[in-house]
Design a protein around this nucleic acid. Structure first.
Lengths: 199, 199, 199, 199
DNA sequence: AATGAATGAGTGTTCATTCAT
DNA sequence: TATGAATGAACACTCATTCAT
């Protein structure tokens, strides 16, 4: 019965993804220690045991979530963006629009940003050091844009990496607002860009 | 023979403060769920039971810490600042210098900012709604400065409260960096002020 | 696939009853403070955690046990007995035979009597005052029998309620013997009845 | 300074007795497990540490209390009573009057009876088996009286020891009432004697 | 000698994980 | 495969005991 087998695998994949997706949000909101498997499974709408069919442990589930949060498809777009033959200011605008747009539309994106930045921030046992590739790449691409902007005199002087950090820090900030606050005023693209742009 | 009553009270007050001070940092770094009483007491350098001599429960200890984080002496300085007969730009400069300076020198201040902002952000059962007075006042004072700045055309247009939120959001961000990251580049006063200042 | 809902509920009810039944004996023998959850669960033959699946706390478990000890089916028999058209002496005989018989055969009955009487006796925070209905009814029925006996001159004069208290006090006494002493001489029906009967 | 030394010893003895006396009541009411040193010392009106100046441990304090409860001066009176050249009925009357009288006047006596009987009843690790001498003697003296009464046909037939047990059981019962209940009707001498007396 | 703050072993309770169904 | 009752290790909290004053 090859067909039923495929279908079976499909269903498994589906459930696994549901768990990952919902857990991503749950962990982003409550943290690792603040997340109980009993609450999480209730939130997902499955039995506690089901989580252990797909994941070895709470720890492994969390690591899988971090991997996902890390394997962001934005990187490809960033790569294209960086190499485009336009001004850094324009690149920054496109990046900022893309980021704020997704932040608004997609809670999962906010959760990914939140977990990723916390991973960087806390850099403790909970987050393996290998998982920072994505962040590094993202930061490196942004670094290039800001460096270009500094040469073009459109962006403020000083340590480029500090500015990168600042820019994404603010994105993290509004990811948190997106995740926790029901009613809040989202930052504008202009606001975000002032982190690095000259007046 | 009993210890002299005054000395006894003094010692009690001292120990209580030590616990509060150290716990403030510990909770700010690890969160409520992530803080084990056993680890905390080890970190403070006292027995587990000692914490329960001074506080009813982990929960009560946390609430006391939130109260402290909330009763910041910065408010008085802010009040003076707001009413000074100088430009909003100058007021902002003085505020920013004061804030970043304390952030750098005083880890406890960073912890207070961090807990306070999380309290605002998460606004859930863990944080009682009454505790937000400080934040509200702080935000209101900043609101006045920014409003003045907008009239003086030195600060960007748009919702003043959003800008207040943005400004303190960035302060929160660097409080987290101060708490979690051992080596990092602190934001400059100029960087911080770009959140609200026109170029 | 989940267990069939009914079977599941059935099993839950069964376990709950096992815990209640065994705990009744354990608490009756060791008292509230003298009962450790670890020992109790070992005695029942389950894990410590299992108790907390069915009861909120040691306190709640104890209160549930008191409720059970209070909702004795003997009351119905008593009601019938009281209204029978026979002499008080005969009623007393039937009551005493029933009580001593059950005491001998059923340890659980002894535990129920013991807890109930202690509840009456200690009347402190541990035992809610609402729980004394059963005792009151039981005492009231007995009161009627003794009153009748006093009219019929078969029972000793004096405060009927004092005699009721005395009668059930002796039952309590032999409930304790049943619970604590492995080898002892059970009181006879004649002995028990001498508490209230004229020679 | 011999005088001050004596005085010192005197004071020590006094404090020790206060602790024993108050603890006797406290333990009788709350049981061993139900008695916290913190509560007990508060009840006595001394510091927790003071108890450990006079006793090795909670356990030792309890054992000392049991010894006191056991070394009752009533035994001497009983010895005299038993050997008096009067009827068993009269002896019983004198015993019962003495016992109920003391029960009413002296709470400590009630506590002693209560602890003693529990010791007999529970016969577990908490109560060393050597401590039952007093009880045994008391029972033996009573046994002689009842045996005499049975010969004299004034007391009911059957196992004399069972009757002894019954008689003192009822005394225990009213010791509990004395200890726990603020308002209650004390049993009369007649009531008490019906346990063993023929009509 | 008397105290009560400090302690950690012990107890009550929670929660990640297992497993029978 | 999915479940949720059962579990015990881990955590919050208590309390007998110690000890500096």
């Amino acid at each position: 019965m090859p067909k039923s087998k495929e279908r079976c695998k499909e269903i498994r994949e589906e459930m696994r993804n549901t768990i990952l997706q919902k857990s991503l949000l749950y962990f982003a909101r409550n943290g690792f220690a603040g997340t109980k498997i009993s609450d999480l499974s209730k939130n997902i709408g499955i039995g506690q045991g089901t989580i252990y069919v797909y994941f070895e442990s709470k720890e492994e589930l969390f690591q899988e979530i971090l991997k996902i949060a890390n394997s962001n498809e934005m990187l490809k777009k960033m790569k294209l963006l960086v190499n485009m033959p336009v001004s850094a200011k324009k690149k920054l605008r496109m990046l900022s629009e893309m980021v704020l747009n997704r932040l608004e539309k997609d809670e999962t994106f906010a959760a990914m940003i939140a977990l990723n930045t916390q991973m960087l921030l806390e850099k403790n046992e909970a987050y393996s050091s290998e998982e920072t590739t994505y962040q590094t790449k993202l930061y490196n691409y942004t670094f290039k844009i800001i460096e270009q902007g500094q040469k073009e005199k459109s962006m403020v002087d000083g340590s480029s990496m500090k500015l990168v950090d600042y820019y994404w820090g603010v994105v993290y900030l509004y990811s948190l607002k997106r995740l926790f606050t029901s009613e809040y005023e989202m930052i504008s693209v202009d606001d975000l860009e002032r982190t690095v742009l000259k007046g």
